[in-house]
Design a protein around this nucleic acid. Structure first.
Length: 414
RNA sequence: CGGAGUGUAGCUCAGUUGGCUAGAGCACCUGGUUUGGGACCAGGGGGUCGAAGGUUCAAGUCCUUUCACUCCGACCA
């Protein structure tokens, strides 16, 4: 991608109505645009990062047998009435509307109900289980107060996965596989050390649910962690009884602020009973199905990444999620030098490397400042100065390390 | 939803006890000089001062209503 053609530019100043670091940096660097409170558009750079995160999640969900599909954003009232989650008293984040004929509809803030209802047409026998499906959906939640930039929006992208299992053992096996898969996801995006599987309030079906909490000051949750035993407990369930059960004492725990990047729930058979999803077992008897629900906030995760991977100059993307792998910055003025930069751009591209090529007619200082702000892991500078010796400069965004590389051997160094 | 604050150019902001043609910096356009960490000079375009109503000879400024945004709290399957 030539930067001279890239839609949106960086800004020197940030809008004053943004206080969170993630939104400030992402707006300043041209990744997102704020439509209104808690509602953001993703511009080309931001979209590339989102797609990178989604692809990592997709690979890990596929690896444990998930199948991707996509449900509808518009949902039927009757399904949610069956599980007593239609009323604004029980669910206060509903966006609701009505069809022209007066039929009430809701906009999806979650999808257990419609997916389970859909499954009634496809799951009929024990032979059909287990079944795992997932989607990347734009969820709509009428939050009383949006905050923290893209970390808590009214419109956001979530990966939600649903498991339909024959019995408790089959469910538990997959549940554990999801925990492992989620940990892989968070490790791949670079948040391995900061992310904890956390015991949290379980709702009506189990004693605990598991939350995936990433340590960040921008978070909204407070949890207690033991880094050595790798145990984490959400403040909301902390009690003497729970401590005893988990075999830790209060003085072993450290209080930290976190953001919930993932959450998994066991609904038991209750929801399938409410919605009438049952299958026939080996003896021909009709039995209800076990449901599990597993979410990762894709856009929130992007926000957490920016909060965590940034410095005073801008964003420092981990390689796996960076919008481009290489930022090729040309300081060339002479046609013969420009041709060399163009050639290098072509070589990198044909080698399958994602390159943002700063071919703009701008001063070096501006280009470097933009490059730091955008935060691509490797910067390659092509300038008359280094071309004199047939060299280009490598600079790594994270470490700041610099080195000269022979023009002919750039590909060997990648 | 309770409390506090802010709305003036695309962005950041100034604008005195109401006063005459509403300003600056950044960004943008033209020309020139520059060129390794967000350059400089000259010129230029861009505004229903969040909106509606009111007071007044006169409103960005005062009054009323309203909308939006931010922060703190509450909420957060």
């Amino acid at each position: 991608m030539k930067q001279s053609h890239l839609f949106t530019k960086t800004k020197k100043e940030v809008p004053k109505d943004e206080a969170s670091k993630n939104a400030q940096l992402l707006i300043k660097a041209g990744f997102i645009y704020k439509e209104m409170a808690g509602v953001y558009a993703y511009l080309p750079l931001g979209l590339r990062v989102l797609e990178k995160i989604k692809q990592i999640v997709r690979e890990e969900m596929d690896a444990i047998g998930g199948q991707e599909f996509i449900m509808t954003a518009i949902q039927r009232k009757e399904l949610w009435e069956k599980t007593d989650r239609w009323s604004d008293d029980t669910v206060d984040v509903w966006f609701k509307s009505a069809l022209k004929n007066g039929t009430e509809i809701g906009f999806g803030w979650s999808h257990e109900e419609p997916i389970t209802d859909l499954m009634k047409q496809y799951l009929t026998s024990y032979r059909d289980l287990p079944t795992y499906v997932y989607q990347f959906q734009t969820k709509l939640r009428n939050e009383l107060r949006a905050k923290s930039g893209i970390m808590r929006g009214r419109e956001f992208i979530m990966k939600d996965m649903y498991s339909y299992s024959l019995n408790a053992e089959q469910h538990q096996k997959f549940y554990d596989e999801v925990i492992a898969a989620y940990l892989k996801v968070f490790a791949r995006v670079g948040l391995e050390k900061e992310t904890y599987v956390t015991f949290a309030a379980g709702g009506a079906f189990t004693q605990f649910s598991h939350e995936f909490q990433t340590i960040t000051d921008a978070g909204e949750d407070v949890i207690y962690v033991n880094r050595e035993k790798h145990i984490a407990i959400n403040e909301e369930v902390l009690s003497d009884t729970v401590l005893k059960e988990l075999g830790v004492t209060m003085d072993e725990l450290e209080k930290v602020k976190t953001a919930e990047v993932g959450n998994i729930f066991n609904f038991g058979t209750v929801k399938c009973e409410q919605l009438g999803l049952s299958i026939v077992d080996t003896e021909g008897k009709s039995i209800p199905v076990h449901l599990g629900s597993y979410g990762i906030g894709i856009t929130r995760l992007m926000g957490v990444l920016v909060e965590h991977f940034s410095d005073d100059k801008g964003i420092v993307w981990p390689e796996e999620v960076a919008p481009f792998q290489v930022h090729l910055v040309s300081l060339c003025k002479e046609p013969s030098d420009i041709e060399k930069a163009d050639t290098l751009y072509a070589i990198l591209q044909t080698s399958g490397i994602e390159v943002l090529y700063d071919d703009r007619d701008a001063r070096p200082g501006e280009k470097f400042a933009d490059s730091d702000l955008i935060g691509i892991p490797l910067r390659i500078v092509v300038s008359p100065r280094s071309l004199e010796n047939n060299q280009v400069e490598f600079k790594y965004r994270k470490s700041g390390e610099e080195k000269l590389v022979s023009y002919m051997e750039v590909m060997k160094e990648m």
